[in-house]
């Protein structure tokens, strides 16, 4: 059988950890999948209100954030290549860039949410409940839940990348044992991918 050798080295099986990561990504997709179903149903039931509410969102900030995440996906992919080429310095640099981009994304998000709060829009706010239609209440409810959950994933992804960064620095993650960094990369791409769906659903469809 193909996996005879793995027992001689029980603590390192890159195939296993990659499979585990993919399975975990699967569960994350289903987690957001549930929310996407809820979104689709309410969009179908309240098309006009969703369109009106969508115009409240700032497309420019959303677009900038999309570009930021796409670039960060690129930098983390480049960092795995750099690790393979045994260029530790470049790997570390690219990982730091990725974390900084993630931070910029969160700062933008903070201002975006801040503006909404300033306009009196938050889940259960009097302005939302009293002055807006039910479809708009649902839109903003989902907006805060989905982008909030996504932001939480950005934070988890940042921690994951920082752990990988620390290990690369120590040398325990290297060209021969790149699993942890590759898995951090996979996770980061997932976070990126979910945003790629969130952005058009909330900001672009009019």
């Amino acid at each position: 059988m193909e996996n005879v050798t793995q027992h001689s080295e029980p603590h390192y099986d890159p195939e296993a950890s990659k499979l585990g990561m993919w399975l975990f990504i699967f569960t994350e997709l289903l987690l957001f999948g549930g929310l996407f179903i809820v979104y689709s149903i309410y969009r179908f039931l309240n098309p006009v209100a969703f369109q009106l509410a969508g115009e409240e969102l700032n497309v420019v900030i959303g677009a900038i954030n999309t570009i930021i995440l796409l670039v960060s996906s690129m930098t983390i992919a480049m960092s795995t290549t750099a690790l393979q080429q045994k260029n530790k310095k470049l790997t570390l640099f690219l990982l730091i860039v990725t974390v900084v981009l993630a931070l910029v994304f969160l700062v933008n998000k903070y201002f975006e949410w801040g503006t909404k709060f300033h306009h009196g829009i938050w889940p259960g706010s009097p302005h939302l409940i009293n002055d807006m239609s039910k479809g708009e209440i649902l839109f903003f409810g989902l907006y805060f839940v989905m982008t909030g959950l996504h932001a939480l994933h950005i934070i988890i992804g940042m921690i994951f990348i920082l752990v990988a960064l620390k290990r690369v620095q120590k040398g325990t993650v290297n060209a021969d044992r790149p699993s942890l960094l590759e898995n951090a990369g996979l996770y980061w791409h997932l976070v990126d991918l979910i945003w790629i769906f969130l952005f058009p659903l909330f900001y672009l469809i009019h």
């Binding site: 809820v38 309410y42 309240n46 889940p123 409940i129 239609s133 409810g141 989902l142 805060f144 839940v145």
Partner: peptide
């Protein structure tokens, strides 16, 4: 979240189902 914030997703009073 419905309990804490009242996001409305399952609350018929807020348009949810």
């Amino acid at each position: 979240l419905e309990r804490i914030f009242g996001i409305g997703v399952f609350d018929p009073a807020l348009g949810g189902d």
